[in-house]
């Protein structure tokens, strides 16, 4: 389909080879999942499996429920009043709604990076080690070690290593977002959820974060919500397209961008609606 292969900016879309995406077991399983905010149904019949140590991108027009689904993976939506769900989500075989599973321990295993960077009004160091502090780590050496590792992984170490005790609010927007990533990975979660992590960043910072995602993939399973087709194509192994709370198509990124099976998907990624 020349039309799909040749959208206005398709020259920059680089699709990752299929070989990288094989031979992994499913890690997150979402089955017949529906979700309501009060009376309003925000998600309907979502079923998708996310393999271990892969990057999955959620795309779709605004308001289609990408954030809602993402925020249900670590039960962040529990903060909202009057929510309800149907179906189930399992992580590594265990339902996240299992009454024996504490939300806190779930969240410790599922890190999250938000669209708007939200550093705490504390020092850079304290921001990064916050997740360790809450589980009671007091050993300075352990904290420092974790801080350095996380900041290095988040590609921020060289920029801030001399000012770890300065307020995190003095960083630039891009640095703050990378700091939030460092904070989310400091306690080595298994899964990293990212909700439009680059939407407020310039291309250079975006590039750094995308590189970061490639590296983090070695250790984490990553789910990323993005509005940028190019970004989805660059970083993800699989892509899910949502529309009006429904899952329209979920497949390898290559397939979604080269040869989508649904007309709506094709229309969306070629920029004809959304």
């Amino acid at each position: 389909m020349p039309q799909i292969m040749n959208p206005p900016s398709s020259s920059r879309i680089k699709v990752r080879p299929a070989a990288e995406r094989e031979g992994r077991k499913d890690y997150i399983t979402i089955k017949d999942y529906g979700f309501w905010y009060g009376q309003k149904k925000a998600l309907d019949a979502i079923s998708l499996d996310i393999p271990e140590r892969q990057v999955v991108a959620f795309i779709g027009p605004s308001g289609c429920g990408k954030s809602t689904l993402l925020r249900n993976l670590n039960r962040m939506n529990d903060l909202v009043d009057g929510i309800s769900h149907e179906g189930d989500i399992t992580i590594n075989g265990r339902s996240i709604y299992d009454p024996g599973l504490e939300v806190i321990s779930l969240r410790r295993r599922v890190g999250m990076v938000f669209q708007k960077s939200n550093p705490f009004p504390k020092s850079i160091f304290e921001n990064v080690v916050y997740a360790l502090r809450v589980v009671g780590v007091r050993d300075r050496a352990v904290l420092e070690e974790a801080c350095e590792t996380s900041l290095r992984k988040a590609a921020l170490w060289d920029e801030v290593k001399d000012r770890l005790d300065d307020s995190a609010l003095g960083l630039s927007g891009g640095q703050m977002q990378r700091l939030c990533i460092a904070r989310a990975i400091a306690n080595r979660p298994e899964i990293l959820l990212m909700d439009e992590p680059c939407s407020a960043l310039d291309p250079i910072a975006t590039g750094k974060i995308e590189e970061l995602i490639h590296e983090l993939k070695e250790q984490f399973t990553i789910v990323i919500v993005t509005h940028s087709m190019q970004q989805a194509a660059r970083v993800s192994d699989r892509t899910a397209f949502f529309y009006l709370g429904k899952q329209i198509e979920y497949d390898t990124t290559e397939k979604i961008f080269m040869n989508p099976s649904q007309a709506q998907t094709e229309a969306y990624i070629s920029g004809r609606f959304g």
Partner: peptide, 19 residues
């Protein structure tokens, strides 16, 4: 966002309030 960030790292409600 600050509240959510704290809860998302696995802090309890009381830890979020206190810290």
């Amino acid at each position: 966002g600050m509240r959510e960030a704290s809860l998302a790292t696995g802090a309890s409600k009381w830890q979020t309030i206190r810290d």
